[in-house]
Simulated scan of single mutants.
Amino acid sequence: MNDHAAHPPAEGAGMGRRRFLAAAGLTAAAAALAAAEGRAGAAPRTAPAAVGTFRVPIEDVRHTRTWMAWPDSSSIWGGKLSGVQSDIALIARTIARYEPVYLCANPGSAAKARSLCGPAVTVITTIPVDDCWMRDTGPVFRTDGAGGLDAVGLSFNGWGNKQAHAKDTLVAGRIAGHVGVPFTVAGLVGEGGAVEQDGAGTLMATRSSLVNKNRNPGMSQSRIEAALCTAYGATKVIWFDGVYGQDITDDHVDATSRFLAPGKALVQMPLASDNDVYAKDARQQFQILSGATTAGGTRMTVEKLQGPDYDKIRSTHPDFLASYANYYVCNGAVISGQFGDTRADAAAKATLTRLFPGRVVEQLNIDRLGTGGGGVHCVTQQQPAA
């Protein structure tokens, strides 16, 4: 979620991403309860074998499976629920052509999930969920290069207690338990969509999402950076300012900037005529990356991925996320969105095909999910092969 409304209403117009989810917001008491349950109910803090050798690999390594979640809450999605479920099923079926997909569903909605996803998708009912944003709620898997696999939980708190999450805050630990790997809780609160890794020691993140009192009150950027590096097996974070308070995620990095390889990144660029806060944010991210170096001292090279014209896409929803950069790399394929700006859609497919040689680029119409401010990357979490 993983992600922001890349072309939001005017500044000051409100929350932006998934404003319609306000009905599912937490009371202070419920937030405190959910936080307590998240800390107490997660799998035990088990130290991984050979601490310091585990690292989160870049996304294009071989995967054992993809993890997803099935949304079934009308209090969260309202009348949009059925359409969002159809989009989740489309994503799951598409990925399942390339690698196994495990989808967590609540028992009461598992039959519908199985019906829409088809037999190629494994639906399990032992891990309850609140919503579909597996990038943020799921475990961050790490490998050690010697056959070892473990997982880290980022203490998901509903993007700063903006949405009910009593079940979702436990998903990371429960998936790790299902897989049977050691699980640790990171020393910060965050979401998988808030962090990009190159698998070689360098991370990208926005301050607005992580250096934020709604996740990490009282923690300095240096403390948060240290906790991130420990969790991801990294030594350097490239920070962007981001955008505070305009969307539920406080501007996740994975809707704008992605690593292609160690020392190589991609940024989705706005139209030259776009000057909203997210356009300015994207340009700043490109500028910072263009002058950055990796943990190993290599100068970054940065590719541009042109975003669509919001006047030409199908959706007119104010919170719609039209992010080609929110793609998901699975075994043999890259799964991305397409939004109805036919010229931009074709250009994005050509760019991704060039950047990921040997992989099929699949573009999906996921407009219903996009009204929630998310994309393909937001609803998927990879389990890399050890």
Rank of each mutant, 00 (worst) to 15 (best):
F156H: 00
G233I: 00
D274Y: 07
A13Q: 10
Y324E: 11
V267I: 08
K80F: 08
K304T: 14
P384D: 12
G233P: 05
D131F: 01
V334Y: 10
R354E: 12
S109F: 06
R114L: 01
W67M: 11
V140G: 10
V267L: 05
M204A: 08
P9R: 14
G233D: 03
A176C: 11
Q246N: 14
T294Q: 02
D150Y: 04
G177T: 12
V195A: 04
D136V: 05
A272L: 10
S257M: 12
T249Y: 01
G296H: 12
I88D: 04
G52A: 09
A205E: 05
I58E: 11
A347V: 11
T351H: 08
R283Q: 07
A333H: 04
A22H: 10
A234Q: 09
F240E: 00
S315C: 05
T294L: 03
V61Q: 12
L228E: 00
A350P: 05
Q268V: 00
S73N: 09
A205P: 07
W133V: 04
M300P: 03
G78D: 12
A42M: 08
V51F: 13
V129W: 03
D367K: 09
V171R: 08
F156A: 04
P318Q: 11
L81W: 05
G193R: 08
Y232H: 07
A23Q: 14
